[in-house]
Design a protein around this nucleic acid. Structure first.
Length: 552
RNA sequence: GGGUCGAUAGCUCAGUCGGUAGAGCUGCGGACUUUUAAUCCGUAGGUCCAGGGUUCGAGUCCCUGUCGACCCA
């Protein structure tokens, strides 16, 4: 690292922080003067002659020595005492005249050292060079204090890694922006943060387990492509120099995965990092992870059942792997997976109208100049339903056909009230709702219903009012697909930004034959938010996109 | 894009009516041999987000901007 130019402040450090860092560096120098390495490396059994024991293993060794209150019995621990070499980060440091408590943490848990001058001898003075946040190694017999705290009574202790920057104090680290910018500090300082990310990993691995167990093949498809497809969203652009090619980061893996079904992989899935050049909010990060899977010889009905199964499976696995945290999250949940509802979109609209006390033709006449919107608003308000009439009307006026109008009506009349309208029998929790049978116009890749060509064999799942899954029976008629691409190109020509490109190679693939197939997509980030009761997507993405720091 | 709230010590936060910048924790020095947010004594630490305005005087009032959080689209 180079030094900052003269006259410029080093980073954003104030003088006070610089002083804290200088004080720690002085300790580093003292350690060096003693001939010790403040960034030691010789920690393995090969160098030390004894194995390093994880903190949880020390606890496990004395598991049977616990009293009824969960503390440790001094005599029992003494009877089973053994010598351990342990290492970890100092989370807590308190010294007395001739004694000191040092609480260590490693990935498995925490354990304290009870350091005594008579036992450590000259090495006791080394404690002066230790700070909160340092990594240390200690070796000694296990013991319990009078207060029943399992401890190590070290005969040796040494610094492994000096932390030059102070960790936040026990008042904790709450500045939300800094927590995201310095996630490494957030993870140390805020315990529940680690739990959310461990949950994310557990969720992803149980999704794999679920699909692998059903004969799905996990694949990886391109994240850069010359064509934008598979969803409706604005892409990021990039450039390949050697080929002088403008490329787009993928917004969805869909079209590649279906090509693989054409090729004979009848069940494929991808945990796909996707990129969408859109706003940032508590539910949106520019890069996010989507699970998509495709299953030949299945329909969206198959996937309705499978989705319920999958969500229950994942939640069950999470409960098994993180029982304590899971119990806490479940207690905070306002939804339940006990029962799911399946309702056609048109029915959602008509029943929403009924619940709001509105006439049946609202959806078709809201765009008209003489629509009695004030009157309707009054009616709906009387039923406790605040509808965004201004935007509803604007949206309705832009609708090209009956399908778009139905979708618009659903968006404003029904979707905002899903959690209110669909509840468990006791009324305490919301019930997840499958919104079934989407209009053709808003579903450019889904198969038309055989019985009604204005609708598609498609559903979305809303849990707790949030969209989690999108799935449909795939459109496999190449001519129909070509016509839908053309409609998208037409929209783009008229200025629409969220459209798909015409993908000739995909049409060619369909011409070779895509068997009847059902496809499924789910936001992994949003699922994790849901299961861990996290209010923001940034709580489940380790390094969310942030504006760069000044001078950084 | 619109609205609400916020930015003061390394961290968490006070700051009254506009009148010398505060606390706890952290740090540093000291006391203390079983602490769990220890306790006690001492001490250090500030571009009050930036710019402009009002005023004898602005952390405080006004305007503009930057950044952030939340809600809505």
């Amino acid at each position: 690292m180079s030094k900052p130019p003269l006259g410029k402040k080093p980073d954003d450090e104030g003088a006070a922080e610089a002083a804290l860092i200088a004080a720690r560096k002085a300790k580093t120098a003292r350690v060096r003067e003693r001939g010790e390495n403040p960034f030691a490396n010789d920690v393995t059994e090969r160098e030390r002659g004894t194995p390093l024991t994880r903190l949880a293993e020390v606890r496990a060794h004395h598991d049977a020595d616990k009293r009824d209150d969960g503390r440790h019995d001094r005599d029992k621990v003494a009877a089973r005492a053994a010598r351990f070499r342990v290492a970890g980060r100092i989370l807590f440091l308190r010294s007395f005249g001739a004694g000191a408590f040092v609480r260590l943490r490693d990935a498995t848990g925490e354990l304290q050292l009870y350091c005594q001058e008579p036992v450590l001898g000259q090495a006791f003075s080394r404690l002066e060079d230790l700070d909160l946040g340092d990594f240390v190694e200690a070796e000694g017999e296990s013991m319990a204090t009078d207060k029943g705290e399992l401890s190590i009574n070290p005969t040796t202790i040494r610094l492994l890694t000096k932390a030059h920057r102070p960790l936040p104090t026990k008042t904790s680290f709450k500045d939300v922006e800094q927590r995201y910018r310095r996630r490494y500090v957030d993870l140390v300082a805020n315990k529940e943060v680690q739990a959310a990310f461990r949950a994310r990993t557990a969720i992803v691995s149980s999704l794999r387990e679920f699909l692998d167990g059903r004969g799905f093949l996990e694949v990886e498809t391109p994240t850069m492509s010359t064509i934008v497809g598979g969803a409706l969203a604005r892409p990021f652009k990039t450039h390949h120099n050697a080929l002088d090619l403008e490329l787009f980061m993928r917004i969805a893996p869909e079209l590649y995965l279906k090509r693989l079904v054409v090729g004979g992989f009848e069940r494929v899935y991808e945990l796909a990092r996707c990129y969408r050049n859109e706003g940032i909010s508590t539910r949106h990060n520019p890069e996010f992870t989507m699970l998509e899977y495709y299953q030949a010889y299945a329909t969206y009905h198959t996937l309705l059942d499978q989705t319920e199964e999958m969500l229950r499976f994942v939640d069950q696995r999470l409960a098994e792997r993180m029982p304590e945290a899971h119990a806490g999250w479940v207690a905070g949940r306002t939804f339940s997976f006990e029962r799911f509802c399946r309702v056609p979109m048109s029915e959602l609209v008509s029943s929403a109208l009924e619940r709001a006390g509105l006439p049946a033709d609202v959806a078709t006449t809201v765009g008209a100049a003489d629509a009695p919107i004030k009157e309707w608003a009054k009616l709906a308000k009387g039923k406790g339903r605040e509808i965004d009439w201004a935007n509803f009307r604007k949206g309705a006026q832009k609708c090209a056909g009956a399908g778009e109008a139905l979708f618009c009506a659903y968006e404003y009349l029904a979707e905002p009230f899903l959690t209110r309208d669909y509840r468990t029998d006791d009324g305490n929790k919301s019930v997840p709702v499958f919104v079934v049978d989407y209009p053709l116009e808003v579903s450019p890749l889904a198969r038309k219903k055989d019985a009604d060509g204005s609708l598609t064999d498609r559903f979305e799942l809303f849990v707790d009012g949030r969209e989690i899954c999108n799935a449909f029976s795939e459109l496999n008629d190449p001519d129909d697909q070509a016509a839908r691409f053309e409609a998208q190109v037409e929209k783009k020509a008229q200025g629409a930004e969220e459209t798909m490109d015409y993908d000739e190679d995909y049409i060619r693939a369909l011409e070779y034959g895509l068997p009847p197939t059902a496809g499924f997509g789910m936001g992994v980030d949003r699922l994790t938010m849901l299961l861990t009761s996290s209010p923001s997507i940034r709580d489940v993405i380790l390094f969310p996109l942030l504006r760069p720091e000044e001078g950084g």
